[in-house]
């Protein structure tokens, strides 16, 4: 089961990967200070992006403890939250991003099934 899935993963990624430089991925990671969850989430995100979107992404980390008003825009309740601003539609992924498959599904990099 698992190997098959991984195979198809690669396929999908290729199909869905950004085609041009303009088609850049804009990601925002909302965290609260340097909590263990925040650090884990950032590390996980970095890893996934490097693997899947090499050079075609930007990550903005927003610390709500420092800029609380910024949480309004994306209706942030749970922390950490990853928001895919571009490409549209906006997607939200909550948690420390430790479940890679779910992150990929959430980012629309992987189609379930």
């Amino acid at each position: 089961m698992k190997p098959m899935n991984e195979k198809s993963d690669v396929k999908t990624i290729k199909k869905r990967a950004p085609k041009t430089d303009d088609d850049k991925w804009v990601l925002r990671l909302y965290v609260a200070g340097h909590s263990p969850k925040a650090l884990t989430a950032f590390a996980n995100l970095k890893k996934i992006c490097e693997e899947q979107l090499e050079g075609k992404y930007s990550i903005e980390v927003i610390d709500l403890l420092l800029n609380p008003q910024r949480g309004m825009e994306d209706q942030i309740l749970a922390l950490p939250t990853l928001v895919r601003k571009l490409p549209v539609p906006v997607r939200k992924i909550i948690g420390d991003l430790s479940n890679t498959d779910r992150v990929l599904v959430g980012l629309d990099l992987l189609q379930v099934g």
Binding site: L77, L79, V103
Partner: peptide, 15 residues
């Protein structure tokens, strides 16, 4: 919303 691991509602508290 996609859930991908540990989280809390600190965002709500901060807000």
């Amino acid at each position: 919303i996609e859930e991908t691991g540990e989280y809390d509602l600190e965002g709500l508290f901060i807000r």
